[in-house]
Nucleic acid binder design. Sequence first.
DNA 1: ACTACAAAGGTGGCAGTGTCTACATTCGAG
DNA 2: CTCGAATGTAGACACTGCCACCTTTGTAGT
Lengths: 197, 197
Amino acid sequence: MTDSPYHHGHLRTALLERAESVLAQSGADGLSLRALARDLGVSHAAPARHFRDRQALLDALAVSGFTRLNAALRGAAAAPGPPSARLTALGRAYVEFAVTHPPLLALMFTAKHAEDSSAELRELGHAGLGVAAGLIAEAQAAGTARPGDPARLAQVAFSTLHGLATLSLGGLLDDTPLDEALDLALEVLLAGIAPAS
Amino acid sequence: MTDSPYHHGHLRTALLERAESVLAQSGADGLSLRALARDLGVSHAAPARHFRDRQALLDALAVSGFTRLNAALRGAAAAPGPPSARLTALGRAYVEFAVTHPPLLALMFTAKHAEDSSAELRELGHAGLGVAAGLIAEAQAAGTARPGDPARLAQVAFSTLHGLATLSLGGLLDDTPLDEALDLALEVLLAGIAPAS
DNA sequence: ACTACAAAGGTGGCAGTGTCTACATTCGAG
DNA sequence: CTCGAATGTAGACACTGCCACCTTTGTAGT
């Protein structure tokens, strides 16, 4: 607890926390390793001990983002009720997360990640899709979803929600409130996934 | 036609062309004004005469992208046939464009544009949505689409396709061929948009 | 208890970038 | 023909990521 201990002690986590905050406020482009080091009262090369690259830091942020997103999705999917209701809850949770962390989402899905962390990110992204696939499989068992590979139907569902979030963040929704667009999207999606009458 | 004329003559368009090429190959992050100037045999500050900012160049690229995308969409929508078939053609055209120009798409939809050009970009994006809305209105007239504001249904349709393209580019589609995922997405979308039975 | 080593942080430097200001050249309208 | 505006040049500044080398600190092994 001296004034400025030589070893920071929690530099790695401190970097991640601060980077997360900067990312949310200024976007990925506004994230500078040197500025981060300054903010934490540490030399400009210190971050390199914990993150080889700037990209390594960004990848770590993306991993963190996927982890939290997946937790949120799992939480929404675990609620009681029929599969269809839980699917809409899942969709709302996803869009909620997306709209709350715009630059994080961009980081997570614009795949310019390093080769090594790319595998981990893909796996994490896949986990989120798996949650949706599980729900769809349940819906199929309950007879409220068309037959077919649940994983592929999950891809379609995910696409719709992710696209909607992107549209909203891009300001392309115009005067349409996101809530209403989301309701319609979920309605159309569920109707599309329902078994052919 | 001297060796190195003081005035380049077509610097602005040359910059755009070269920038487009670099963008496609190295992404937006790899686009440097100075490198561009070097490539064109011009001083490092010359580009500033045509693009105030680096961001201004990126915005111009986004505008160009939207213009071409809209042209492609309009072409697909103008084909003969029933509205539903033209809607799938529209979707295929969109995904085709998206997958062919990944960094361009990211530039177009990750809204960190300057205030002034933001309006133009929104308008261009809106134009693309308008094409879809028109087709949906036709489908409604033909009785193959549920009632409701065509613009809002277009938002949903656009979301699905855009999201699918993003998923594909992010490598989240895994072993699923894009074609198959696209077919399924279009099928689900059309079923979801169809009138309630 | 001492030593040796590895982890964590610090210093300095290099090449590259975007942007600003001042200056040079060219073009085109009057 | 002249003069101003458009276009391109030269130089500088602050900033960035990254690298090589040095210093401090904690710790493990004898």
